Simulated scan of single mutants.
Amino acid sequence: MIEAADFRNAMSLLTSAVSVVTTAGLSGRYGFTASAVCSVTDTPPTLLVCMNKASSSHLHFLENKILTVNVLGAHHQEISKAFSSKLTPEQRFEYGFWTELETGAPVLEDALVNFDCEVDQIQEVGTHTIFMCRIVAIQQSQHDQSLVYFNRGYHHVGRRVDQTESA
């Protein structure tokens, strides 16, 4: 049998993009830092988002059935830390500039990319809830470095491409 600590140690070696996943509804705006986000299919465009059921905002994501995956750039490390801290939901949104796209879920204005989604399916597995999310809007920025999490630390990947190189 695989021990939980052994699994977590092994998973720390899987490099993951860092995102802040947000929602909004009658009870306010909520968000959390996530590394468990991945593509499911492009027809229809769908993402999978995993969230710990112990999260203080878990119930709000279940009720709202909308969310935005805000993929963080290298310059967003403080935002990632804020959304994984004990700050109140209101205090978390003091970091960054927030707008909306189609669903009304908060969109981080200068994220690498924002995936605005409606939740189509919800599945509970162990300690987590899996949200299957149909993408209804996408917004991309011009930033070229991503914030990733590897071996329990933040790192930056990507490089600036000269216009002459891409021609």
Rank of each mutant, 00 (worst) to 15 (best):
31 G>T: 04
31 G>C: 08
32 F>C: 08
35 S>C: 12
35 S>E: 13
36 A>Y: 06
36 A>F: 09
39 S>D: 10
40 V>K: 01
41 T>M: 06
43 T>F: 00
44 P>R: 08
48 L>I: 05
50 C>R: 02
50 C>Q: 04
52 N>E: 13
53 K>I: 11
53 K>Y: 02
54 A>T: 11
59 L>I: 07
60 H>T: 01
60 H>G: 00
61 F>K: 07
61 F>Q: 10
61 F>S: 10
63 E>S: 11
65 K>M: 12
69 V>D: 04
69 V>I: 15
70 N>F: 05
74 A>D: 15
74 A>F: 10
76 H>L: 10
79 I>T: 15
79 I>V: 14
82 A>V: 08
83 F>M: 11
84 S>Q: 12
84 S>L: 12
85 S>R: 10
88 T>M: 01
89 P>Y: 10
89 P>H: 11
91 Q>D: 15
91 Q>A: 15
94 E>N: 08
95 Y>K: 12
96 G>Q: 09
96 G>I: 04
97 F>Q: 13
98 W>F: 10
100 E>V: 14
100 E>A: 13
101 L>V: 02
102 E>W: 01
102 E>R: 10
109 E>C: 00
109 E>P: 00
110 D>L: 07
111 A>S: 12
112 L>R: 01
115 F>Y: 15
116 D>A: 09
117 C>W: 12
119 V>Q: 06
122 I>Y: 02
123 Q>L: 13
124 E>G: 02
125 V>F: 14
127 T>R: 05
129 T>S: 14
130 I>D: 02
132 M>Y: 12
132 M>F: 14
134 R>I: 10
135 I>R: 06
135 I>L: 04
135 I>T: 15
136 V>D: 06
137 A>K: 13
139 Q>M: 12
139 Q>V: 00
140 Q>G: 07
140 Q>K: 14
141 S>Q: 04
141 S>I: 04
143 H>F: 12
145 Q>G: 00
147 L>P: 00
148 V>C: 08
149 Y>N: 12
150 F>M: 07
151 N>L: 06
152 R>L: 04
152 R>S: 14
152 R>K: 14
